[in-house]
């Protein structure tokens, strides 16, 4: 699919603005676990470098930079650009309602882990 001009529309879950991509900053993959001192090389590598980069369902970090300044998370399909939902960043894993919605829309989806 041609997505040369990245012009996603994502609703900020904090302030409710349907922000276009130029009002946002990308923060790449969401739900990464930080590994600090004491972690193994493998753990650190996974934290720092290993990214899923899926064609399909993906969880991402976005910051409403030109708006309320808050970071939020988005679940979307990288292939069709369908957005399953956005949610606040202060969670360890995607909310249940978004998981349900993704399962309904993508029955073959293997889960976010």
């Amino acid at each position: 699919m041609e997505t040369g001009c990245n012009m996603l529309l994502l609703e900020c879950p904090y302030c409710g603005v349907k922000a276009e991509e130029t009002e946002l900053s990308p923060g790449y993959e969401a739900h990464l676990k930080r590994f600090g001192p004491g972690s193994t090389d493998e753990e650190f590598e996974a934290y720092m470098f290993a990214r899923k980069n899926p064609k399909g369902v993906h969880f991402e970090r976005w910051r409403h930079t030109y708006g309320c300044g808050k970071w939020f998370l988005a679940a979307r399909c990288t292939a069709t650009l369908e957005v399953f939902g956005t949610y606040p960043a202060q969670v360890g894993e995607p909310p249940a309602d978004i998981i349900e919605k993704i399962k309904a829309r993508r029955p073959d989806w293997k889960g976010y882990k």
Binding site: T3, G4, C5, M7, L8, L9, E20, E21, L81
Partner: peptide, 10 residues
Amino acid sequence: AGVYDHGYVL
């Protein structure tokens, strides 16, 4: 001129 993501049109 062009149709882009999520209904964006120039």
